[in-house]
Design a binder for these strands. Structure first.
Lengths: 111, 111
DNA sequence: CGGATACATTGATGATTGTCAATACAACGC
DNA sequence: GCGTTGTATTGACAATCATCAATGTATCCG
């Protein structure tokens, strides 16, 4: 058989357009959404959000989350590394606040 | 030591507010975000979106995604089961379109 | 029917993830 | 310094996931 690619047997699809989507952007966004892909983390984010600009102390997050303290700490780390929250130490306690800019970034990616 | 709970040693945190967050809602949202937590799926979604209301044929998604056909089929299934896309069979081909309503639902959850 | 094409499903495998117990670290009060 | 309290890290384990090769199913064409 010849090596000619074929003959375009039938019209199949409308050209889908080369997606204005950078590989790197996709990976970066995926990391953000991955951080949101857990009910416990969504709950934590909600708690932190509703705590206002001042942020929330971890000590007030553990019990409502229904998870152990190390697990909560783990989830907060995931959120932090995804850029969705930032933490600050005040004395003995750690305070977390939402990084609204990053949240908006993800929201924007959805349209 | 007494069994009294303690004496509230120091004021720690402002009450975080009991998060207007249903457990079930969180699980449902998490599933949606989980579907977005992969660069390949984001890319696919972008391709489908930019194909307009008519949708996109799988045959035009495989090559741009840089993955094998079964892998693409798998990812489309994940997106479908998350309610983010819907599929329809037209003759030999399968067409996928974005379920904007579900996308907006997730967007809304981000504020 | 028979071959070809489009897509889905199955099975296997290596990687990542959520969870907790145990432990470490750090800051405070005494 | 010493014990206590708040938080983070480590280690282990079961579960889920992304991927591809192989196979199955369905539709079209001749």
């Amino acid at each position: 058989m010849g090596s000619i690619k074929a003959k375009i047997p039938v019209v199949c699809c409308a050209p889908v357009g080369s997606a204005s989507f950078d590989e790197r952007d996709a990976a970066e966004l995926a990391k953000g959404f991955a951080a949101l892909a857990d009910p416990v983390r969504l709950h934590l984010l909600s708690l932190i959000t509703s705590a206002g600009a001042d942020g929330a102390c971890v000590c007030d997050l553990v019990e409502p989350s229904g998870r152990s303290q190390p697990t909560v700490s783990h989830h907060l780390k995931v959120l932090r590394e995804a850029g969705l929250v930032a933490s600050e130490k005040r004395g003995t306690w750690a305070w977390y606040r939402v990084e609204q800019q990053r949240v908006d970034e993800l929201k924007l990616a959805l349209g």
